[in-house]
Amino acid sequence: MRDAWQHRELWGHLGWQDIKQRYRRSVIGPLWITISMGSTALALGLLYSTLFKQDLATFLPYVTVGFIVWNFILGVITEGTDVFIANEGLIKHLPAPMTVHVLRMVWRQLLFFAHNLAVYVVVLIVFFPALTKPYHMEGDTFTHPGITWNILLVIPAMALLVVNAVWVALLFGIISTRFRDIPPVINSFINLIFFMTPIVWHTGVLNTVTNGEGNWRILIAELNPLYHFVELVRAPLIGHVQSWHHWVVVGAFTIGGWALAFVALRNYRARVSYWV
């Protein structure tokens, strides 16, 4: 790990290069990332606010932010499983710490995330009046406070998300390099998980549709670890009530995940170049 930090200029540069590379011959370049995110979020927001009879002014920001955070998580998981396999050539030809490839990937995803934040800023400006005063979401039994200085909580939240992204990519990357079944398994289930996670819908809806008897369904959402990660970053950005239990769950995952990743790294780091 210390080696990888010494190589920070390397993965920093490579991550940048990846983004520049993707749009080298295109006219508006990296703006495409933002545009595609913006149009998807707009369409999803319009569709689901109608379906769930939600107020567009508060639901569209909810979907947008949820989707932006989800995209980061999705990128980390799918590219994380592939991180060593995709870098086979580099691993076999240049001696560099394994973590360099992981950090490059996470850094690239973080840059994508930053591009997508532009969409959030636009949404925030458009719906500023509705988001800065307390509001109520259909189905919730309580009122959300609106955006306050709590928005700053997004910084530690995002930092935690990134810290988790690194272990996920390390652990999943090592396992998938050895067992090539893992990437297809993850790719086929990730869409399901997207719909299971409260992103285009929110947990209050479960109360409404089941007349308050949907507790076991809410439990399913709670058991989905990704829900806590999404909620951690999303709540401060749109002024939702944030329960402290999300921090506890994410904190537990951070410690547990890193412990596993360290074990995997210690035992199998040297094997990765044999397996790729």
Partner: peptide, 20 residues
Amino acid sequence: GVGMDPEISGYENIMIRGLF
């Protein structure tokens, strides 16, 4: 061929190689 990106310039490739 490895560690060299065909799409970017020689200068940039020098930089990446060196960083590696």
